[in-house]
Design a protein around this nucleic acid. Structure first.
Length: 554
RNA sequence: GACCCCAUCGUCUAGUCAGGUCCAGGACAUCAGGUUUUCAUCCUGAAAACAGGGGUUCGAAUCCCCUUGGGGUCGCCA
């Protein structure tokens, strides 16, 4: 009894690299629903497309799921996740199973072999387009007699297997969100269920696997709505039970276009096309040609990134990994993703994964498509960062540094800790400190002073110029006993009290510019403390040495 | 184009299923003030929506219909 009523959901990505946010949201809801009901969440890899499934690197989404805390009970084994008794969880390893069912359908006359080539079919489709009619497979192969089929088979003619769809008026999909959706029976033709290469199509593999893996609830994007009708037909032909379906609305880009993992590729293509580029340093000629030969051919992510860097364009953040790299927190991503298509009701919008598991239900899912608003995500991330205690922020920032900015680790334990402390309040992402504080890593005499109005204001302008204050403060700083934030503060405050009418800004800004090259940095005392006495004094000298140049620029 | 889905501030949404307490609430973004050693925060305030039209009803953001708009699908991709 418990075995048959156990809730089982699955997330079934194709192994095409990193997880994109739309997929992450689907996975999150599948996971949350299973957890909510004490069921199991299955991860299955849909790698039946030989053209697109290639190396192990394309399993990067496992890491993404794990990072988000979406842990799968069954599926590929990865860092404590996966395993299970319904495997293999790679469809490419289940071909025998599919063939068994395929043979059965053929024997029963519920499916049949078809020998048309892809080109022939494409021609037929083109013709239908011209005639402004809907293309539907004409069932020509159904009329082949057994002898002909035998002959073709003995000739090893490539062929597909098509489902002989029953002639029904309509197919009614019971959707947990949308209610009953009716698809006309004539809208589904005898679609292909096994490709010429011997692999099942997505439709067939999904149905067989969902049955054999005991999937009870299928949550997926609304783009699958019509596919569900096909899947129901296969289930009926095979005598399988019907899982419950829920088709959720899609997540769109802010410009209204569908948020797709192909967006990066699209951005590159558009740029290359606009500029009429015919070659690139980052992409070898062969790959370049392959990429141009068909618009579905996508560059590998690392190649795409190299090309983007070469062309100087920013690729849209689409993958979970992009957001990780950009310094967003996994718990914020989970929160934000959950809000895209589900709402707990009332004014509640900040919550964690436990809350989601406690409260997730189908009733409160949103039917209409939503746009992915980065500003709001950023605001959520800021709030989460600010709510963190200092120790936690330090730990997270260090993790981020280890992964993306190891050069900052060279500051050493103590200085990195201070670096974290003084950056927390001013950070919206874990990435912020590393992009805004590069001056910490630069040689003292390599500091380059920005030629901006604010820099000149800090250094040149005023009754007593910033340069003058710097001169005067040098001996003061040189004599600060213990080079600590508190003593530095004391010394500089006192100097400001005596020489700038207590106006700290008058002396803090010149200092800031002298040691960082610009007008933006963490708190000045922390900044000085991290740099160290020697560096600070030497940067002040460096700054003063450029007095003429800085004053002369306009 | 055909078929399907959807429709509250610019955006995410609460309210819709069980019509009145909603001249519509929250959040992000925006704008205006304020705090602050810079940036970022933070505080206060403002502007901002029931797509349009018809019904049903004493009463409609809520129910029905049409129009319009947005999205999806139309592969030997998944």
């Amino acid at each position: 009894m418990t075995e048959t009523t156990e809730i089982r959901t699955r997330f079934a990505p194709s192994p095409s690299g990193h997880l994109h946010v739309g997929g992450a949201r689907t996975a999150l809801f599948c996971w949350a629903y299973a957890r909510r009901h004490g069921g199991r969440f299955v991860l299955r890899i849909e790698d039946t497309d030989q053209k697109r499934s290639s190396d192990a690197a394309s399993m990067a989404f496992l890491e993404d799921l794990k990072w988000l805390g979406i842990e799968w009970d069954e599926g590929p084994e990865y860092e404590g996740c996966g395993g299970g008794h319904h495997g293999p969880y790679f469809q490419s390893q289940r071909v025998d199973i599919y063939n068994r069912y395929l043979d059965q359908l053929i024997a029963e006359g519920k499916a049949y072999r078809a020998f048309e080539t892809a080109e022939e079919l494409e021609a037929a489709r083109a013709k239908a387009r011209e005639a402004k009619t809907d293309y539907r497979y004409d069932r020509a192969a159904l009329k082949l007699d057994d002898a002909t089929i035998e002959t073709y088979l003995s000739e090893n003619r490539p062929h597909v297997v098509r489902l002989r769809t029953p002639d029904v008026d309509e197919i009614v999909i019971h959707d947990e969100l949308l209610g009953d959706v009716t698809v006309g029976g004539d809208e589904i033709d005898d679609f292909v269920i096994r490709k010429a290469d011997g692999y099942p199509t997505y439709h067939f593999a999904v149905v067989v696997d969902d049955e054999l893996m005991g999937i009870t609830h299928v949550l997926r994007g609304q783009e699958h709505l019509k596919n569900t009708a096909r899947h129901m037909l296969i289930q009926d032909a095979l005598g399988f039970r019907r899982p419950q379906y829920l088709h959720m609305s899609l997540t769109m880009n802010v410009d209204g276009s569908k948020m797709s993992k192909r967006d990066k590729d699209k951005a590159l293509r558009r740029f290359v096309k606009d500029r009429n580029l015919t070659a690139s340093e980052s992409v070898d000629a062969k790959t370049w040609q392959w990429w141009h030969s068909e618009k579905d051919n996508q560059l590998d992510l690392d190649v795409a990134e190299k090309l983007a860097a070469e062309l100087g364009i920013h690729l849209p953040e689409i993958n979970v990994d992009d957001f990780r790299r950009a310094g967003y927190l996994p718990e914020v991503m989970v929160n934000f993703l959950a809000l895209l298509g589900w709402s707990p009701g009332g004014d509640v919008e900040k919550f964690d994964a436990d809350f989601l598991v406690e409260n997730f239900n189908f009733e409160r899912m949103i039917k209409s498509p939503s746009k992915f608003d980065r500003d709001k995500l950023m605001a959520f991330n800021l709030d989460a960062l600010q709510a963190m205690d200092a120790e936690e922020f330090h730990r997270r920032l260090r993790e981020h540094a280890e992964r993306y900015h190891p050069e900052y680790l060279e500051l050493g334990e103590d200085r990195f800790r201070l670096f974290a402390e003084c950056n927390q309040a001013r950070s919206k992402t874990l990435e912020d400190p590393f992009i805004s504080c590069r001056f910490f890593l630069v040689d003292d005499d390599a500091i380059c002073y920005q030629s901006t109005k604010t820099v000149r204001k800090a250094l040149v302008k005023g009754e007593v110029s910033g340069f003058a204050h710097l001169e005067n403060m040098k001996p003061v700083l040189a004599e600060v006993g213990d080079w600590s934030v508190s003593l530095l503060e004391q010394a500089v405050e006192q100097y400001a009290q005596e020489n700038a009418g207590g106006n700290l800004g008058k002396v803090a800004q010149p200092l800031r510019v002298a040691v960082t090259g610009g007008t933006v940095s963490p708190g000045i005392f922390e900044t000085l403390a991290i740099l160290g006495r020697e560096s600070v004094l030497s940067r002040i000298d460096h700054c003063l040495s450029q007095r003429e140049t800085i004053a002369a620029t306009k």
